[in-house]
Design a protein around this nucleic acid. Structure first.
Lengths: 220, 220
DNA sequence: GGAGTTTTGGACTAGATGATTCACAACACC
DNA sequence: GGTGTTGTGAATCATCTAGTCCAAAACTCC
């Protein structure tokens, strides 16, 4: 009856592919990878079993698609948080806050698919994707640090690469804590404190840390 | 024939309980919790299926015993690393080094049972145990920081609690990276750099970070 | 050596799970 | 409306999995 030229040939799908993918995300997110059965996916996605196999290929390939979509979305939101026009300190705070909030969202499973679920999947393609994605995350933070140097928010000798890695590790640590059930409030406070840890400049004069540094030299 | 008074009554066990527990640890460590079947455990532990149920109760209770034993052993080694008589800087370096090394041991699964596996287990008892264990870990680092204050390695206003949490988060982050397949060498370097991040004293004079701090005040 | 006790290995059952098949439904095109 | 194409739901099948049962084995005690 309705003449839609761009419509494909046969019977139209009863589900939206992207929406089904999002629902699948929730399933994997809350139950892990090994903990999920095809029946879980069928029930959670609102997709018939044959359709699932026909459209997504199977559990493994579905998970890969889920992972890519999830990472893209999260990456975009993280970039939005860290690159919005504000001083570096606030950018970093926004970034950490977003990380904690997305890992402790009410109505969502705790933790993060990329940190808590995917690393456990014994699959070369997943591993490769994770490596790339995390490298991209670190690069993003590095980039923001460099902007911060240009803007004069941090000194030009700020150890960009090291600090970016440390920020990424902190985020991972906070995310795992979220998965363990630590309250959002606690994690937000720690994230706030971590900003100072990463950004505050080092003084060479104050504090009796000379002995510690000396001991290090002796040791190494 | 042989008269051993302390020996129990019936047929002796064909396996050593603690050894079997260690083998079970490896199985869970490498395959996760949901990924492990009873057959995996039977094969990996060298224990008959009925014996497994009789002695360890089942997968869940076995995992709990595994977890406790694992945490105790790791906690002891971590304490040894951080409390050995040396300046705070070296203690912290030892602690981080141990964390990375134990998560990247050759011949062992990458990562850590407490960080990468247990948080995903949907079980109240496991969750409770994790909370206690991680709290204990943070308390351990705090204690060492206080010793460091007494020894004059760090100033008396050193934010003990915050820094201890941050160290714990960093360790978790590094551990997840290990699980993702990052090389030990890389992680060891980052751990080394992190020592400075945590310990180096803050100066109030140097660096153009005034704008950033100001921005923070404006915001908050 | 015989009785009692505990562990073991193999077998067994009920149920879950992964993946496919097939008849039928819903559309576009002519 | 007829034809070809694609998606859907129900049913199906072989396999895997958890947990239990039982006869035999290995021991202690008497």
């Amino acid at each position: 009856m309705i003449h839609n030229t761009t419509r494909p040939r046969g019977r139209p799908r009863s589900f939206d592919e992207l929406e089904a993918l999002q629902k699948a995300t929730r399933v994997f997110w809350s139950k892990g990878y090994d903990g999920v059965t095809i029946d879980d996916l069928v029930a959670g996605m609102g997709v018939g079993r044959p359709s699932l196999y026909a459209v997504f290929g199977g559990k493994r390939t579905l998970f890969l698609r889920v992972l890519r979509a999830y990472a893209e979305k999260k990456g975009a939101l993280a970039a939005k948080a860290i690159f919005s026009p504000q001083p570096l300190r606030d950018s970093l705070a926004s970034f950490l806050r977003y990380s904690v909030e997305s890992a402790t969202e009410e109505g969502c499973p705790a933790g993060c698919l990329l940190v808590c679920v995917a690393p456990l999947v014994d699959d070369a393609e997943v591993r490769q994707f994770l490596q790339n994605t995390t490298a991209g995350g670190v690069a993003m933070v590095e980039l923001r640090f460099r902007d911060g140097i240009s803007a004069g928010d941090i000194p030009s000798d700020f150890p960009v690469a090291a600090r970016a890695s440390q920020v990424a590790d902190l985020v991972r640590g906070l995310t795992v804590r979220a998965k363990m059930g630590t309250a959002r409030k606690t994690l937000l406070r720690e994230a706030e404190e971590a900003v100072d840890l990463v950004l505050l400049p080092r003084g060479t004069s104050r504090g009796p840390s000379g002995s510690a540094r000396k001991a290090r030299t002796v040791r190494g």
